[in-house]
Design a protein around this nucleic acid. Structure first.
Lengths: 345, 345
DNA sequence: TTGTAAGCGTTATCAG
DNA sequence: CTGATAACGCTTACAA
């Protein structure tokens, strides 16, 4: 249960011995220090290669107090938005010389808490987090702030003020765009399926959407509003409810695309014509929305651009000496969104 | 460019001093060693909490020569198959006390090589790899084998014999299932769009497919076969070629679902009726195949089950002392596949 | 330009 | 049950 490896790996001490010089010199040579002669640098590098030396970043990290690892906690990598975000972020960080340690909370607060601890133990140089649907208390990240370790929340961010960095989509605007679009398209009996309000993005999408309807004095009846985890199964259940009464909605805002897709399928099964009888708009511009028939109008969030913002934030925070705990705050970065019109509206 | 953190973190030495005991005792207490009194264990843990002590796994890893980190190199996390694989693998490894370090090669051999080096430097306890489309030489992984670090290839595995562990889908059978299915459905003019043959999975799918056609003496004309990276754009280009001649295919095997989807859209645009005039079968059972109209027949690969196999392999390899380099081989594990019939056939 | 020596934080060993 | 010590591999003042 505690297996160890045999000591067959070569260290800089071995190289030093083989060459009859000091380990310090070897270290300097391998790190391309300026204070070393070209000749020894070459000698060392050759010998290193010959002996099969491999840099040990654990030792180096311990000594340097920096791991070159950045932690990422994401609710689920199966979400289109996060996949694109991660890919873009990883590319940027790789270039900057960092490795990304990607973890999934699976929307479980307790897993998120464990991951935070584990990544702290690993002494990541920075942490990037998109919260679970239910995270309200973010105190499990306090240790990072206390130590001045850059902490960036993106997308699903804390609903309470925090001294951490924040990069988020303009969910208020997204909700408002969706609402206006349905109104302009002529909808007056509008239903809304949203995620739980414990989560920042759904709070804001809801606010924006409600405000949009209010400007035209369209009401959003309580029995036409659902808040729950936005899975396909939940969507089907809610749709049955929403369309079970006498009066049917003529417009639906689904706060994610999985739900919008379920709605299109539901309409198909129940002979509801889309967009004639029912207009549907989703959120995130998941590639699936353009594959399904009819294709679904959605809100684009530009995940790669968001990743660029996060990368910029990280890199500048990491460059500036992170010595002074508490000084890492900043005003939230709000990223634009856009409506992509397709055939469901 | 080389920022260091101030030494404000507490170590076990600080705890030891505060308690007037030795660091060794503190370490034992925190690790729940059996050779320690209940009383001191409690005292230590209380003090640790009070002082805000946090375990430093870098130091611990260096001392123990094990990081509890497992490296993963995957071509792209945007592929459905890998997303599900990763999710399942991560859950299993988390339970076993390991963290996953997920990296993307983006199908670039040179990136793959760099990642291998970087993960070696990080002294991962094991490495899991699905190769790029073009990796033929796998010598950049030799270091792991030489040091007896468990190395598992899955899905896209080396085409040459290797002493590493191998877990792969039954791509030969998958190709054969696809071929037989098209034949049984009555297709005789069959086209095939495949990935590059440098990649194991396409080699085998092709072999299986060709063998299936051969049993019924159906030929696969060379101008109806394409090998290239299976993107939507490439697919569109190939489809234009395949359907540009006088004789049109009545069956198409697309070696991934992105291509199959492109084919369905192509058929729609060109007024080719599916499945009446053209039958289409994809590969991987991407969720998109069941959303599109008509829904696409595909080959299921059971990524989660594959991840379980990989996890089993890893955990047993890590438990058995990995002292003896060269003894970690094993016969390839072949995972079943299944045909999922939908409306395109 | 190179060497010496100390130390990053933890833990295994050995002795008490 | 507890303590002293050394070591994991690397880096960096400081000294030569």
């Amino acid at each position: 249960m505690t297996p160890k490896k045999p000591r067959s790996e070569k260290s800089i001490v071995d190289i030093a011995k083989a060459l009859g010089i000091s380990p310090a010199t070897v270290s300097r040579a391998l790190n391309n220090s300026s204070r070393i002669s070209e000749a020894t640098r070459r000698r060392v590098k050759e010998m290193a290669k010959e002996m099969g030396y491999r840099h040990n970043s654990m030792a180096s990290s311990l000594r340097n107090r920096r791991s070159n690892i950045i932690g990422l906690i994401v609710p689920r990598i199966s979400m289109y938005f996060h996949v694109f975000f991660i890919t873009a972020l990883q590319r940027r960080l790789q270039i900057a010389g960092y490795n990304l340690m990607i973890c999934q909370s699976n929307d479980s607060v307790s897993v998120e808490r464990e991951l935070a601890n584990s990544l702290y133990s690993a002494r990541v140089d920075a942490l990037v987090v998109s919260l679970t649907l239910y995270t309200e208390d973010v105190s499990h990240f306090d240790g990072f702030l206390a130590q001045g370790i850059p902490l960036v929340f993106y997308d699903r961010v804390p609903t309470m003020p925090t001294p951490a960095f924040i990069v988020k989509g303009d969910d208020y605007r997204g909700g408002m765009l969706a609402g206006n679009h349905l109104l302009v398209a002529g909808c007056r009996r509008i239903a809304y399926v949203s995620g739980p309000l414990s989560c920042s993005i759904y709070q804001e999408r809801t606010r924006g959407f409600v405000d949009a309807l209010a400007t035209r004095s369209v009401s959003l009846p309580e029995h036409w509003v659902c808040h729950h985890e936005l899975t396909a199964e939940n969507a089907r259940r809610s749709l049955r409810l929403l369309f079970g009464g006498n009066e049917k909605p003529d417009g639906l805002f689904a706060a994610n695309d999985t739900t919008a897709i379920a709605a299109v399928e539901f309409a198909r099964e129940h002979g509801i014509r889309v967009p004639e009888e029912l207009k549907i708009i989703g959120y995130s511009n998941d590639p699936r929305t353009s594959i399904i028939t009819p294709s679904i109008t959605s809100i684009e969030q530009f995940p790669s651009e968001m990743a660029d913002k996060v990368a910029d934030t990280l890199i500048s925070a990491l460059k500036h000496s992170p010595d002074a705990p508490g000084t890492i705050a900043g005003r939230p970065v709000i990223c634009p969104v856009d409506l992509v019109r397709r055939t469901t509206t």
